[in-house]
Simulated assay, not measured.
Amino acid sequence: MDVSLGIVECIPLMEDLYYASIECDGVPLEQLAGERVGCRLEQSEGQAPGFLPQRHQLVFRSVPSPEAAPDDDTIQRVIYRTDLPYRPGHSSIIYPAELNRRPTTVGALGPYASLICGHQDYIENSVLLSAVQAVGSAARLREIREVAHTYGHRFRARSDGARNTRHRRTMLESISDGLSHLELELSYSVEAGGDIGTLVPALRVESFHNALYSTMGLTERSATIGQMLSRLSNAIAAELTSVESAEQRAGDRRRIRTVVAVTFVTTVTGTLSLLFGFFGVNAQQVDQSRSMFDDRYAPIYALIAFILASSLAIFGGMRLHERWSERRERGLLRTWETIHGLLAREFGTVMLDPMHMVAPPPNPRVPGTRPQPPDEEPQPSGTRTQ
């Protein structure tokens, strides 16, 4: 927008433009901007259409002579959009070195407005592109932050005591997949936008872009949100490990139940097969005229009982050996042993055990502490006593 006003007289216009409270032939500024870019602003979900809260104003002015360059007080009035004096030393305005190198050039940057004076047209166009990139990165950073907070709320609202681990795993996997997309978007849409020197090889443009990212706080905010995403990813990874452990325990229990059932069936069928196999053989030891519960067959029943008892004894012996091994392994590692025990084992350092420290016997050659006389002044060391 080209206006024929003084630089201080533009402050009320800048204020109206910042809050989009200006109309052109009865058309609001936001609608006019949307029509210029071919976008129809339609109200949806009960929200009025409009600009995003992230915005940055640029003020360009020509400087024909060094005397026409604005002073610090005028610059702060434009940057803060208020026609009031200020106290020097209390300002967040940044002056890039490359934009203020000559007497007729001025470059002052604030978080929401910048003043560029005395520069060529291609520098002003590059500065405009830089501001567009910075505002787009700030808007994208806000969206990433909101989505990250949504993921964090979903993660905190999860039910740890839910028995359905499949639902928990599905929820965690969806959040993890979304976080990977957010980290990629943060890298390419925000962090990569901080480097403009590879696209526009100009010192003044690069100096302006770096200062703009710094004064808008995009570098620090992107680092903070990156830490949020990283820590949330670590928390989700730990939760997935917990879910995997619960699923593994459930799988172990299923396998144990299956093994117990199969072992029981195998034991019963094996015993019955041995028994009926004996009675089914065509031998003289099997008398068809006798009952299977006759005392004559007591040895075969004793043999079967001996086999079952032997199997139970083997199982009990293995279980006792397992418990003995567990106690032995726990006894090898001291409960108080930490890094000091590791150093003692690896490097042979001396490790003092307070539980087994014994006071050495007194040495008669070393004199004890001389008692102080009760009613006299303390005597200096080396004074002979009578």
Rank of each mutant, 00 (worst) to 15 (best):
R61M: 15
S62N: 08
E98I: 08
A162N: 05
I314E: 10
M351C: 13
C39M: 14
L303G: 09
G178V: 04
R231T: 06
E143G: 10
A131Y: 02
L272V: 06
L184M: 13
E124D: 11
E337R: 01
I11L: 05
T383N: 00
L109E: 03
I225H: 06
Q31R: 02
R327Q: 05
S174K: 05
V147D: 03
E15H: 11
G197K: 01
F347V: 06
L312K: 00
F276R: 14
T338C: 12
S187M: 13
V59G: 03
Y151L: 14
R257S: 07
S291P: 07
P85K: 00
N282P: 07
D160H: 10
R319V: 14
Y95L: 15
T266N: 06
E191V: 13
G331V: 01
G348F: 01
Q47A: 09
T241S: 11
E346W: 12
F347I: 05
A202W: 01
P380M: 05
M355T: 14
S65H: 13
F60E: 14
I22Q: 04
R345T: 03
Q57A: 13
Q76Y: 09
V3G: 08
A211F: 00
A97H: 03
G152P: 10
S65W: 09
A148P: 13
E23M: 10
S137D: 09
G38M: 12
A261D: 07
E185D: 05
S214Q: 15
I123C: 06
T335N: 06
V260Y: 00
Q372W: 06
L128M: 14
Y301A: 09
D25V: 08
N164F: 01
L343S: 11
T335M: 02
F279T: 04
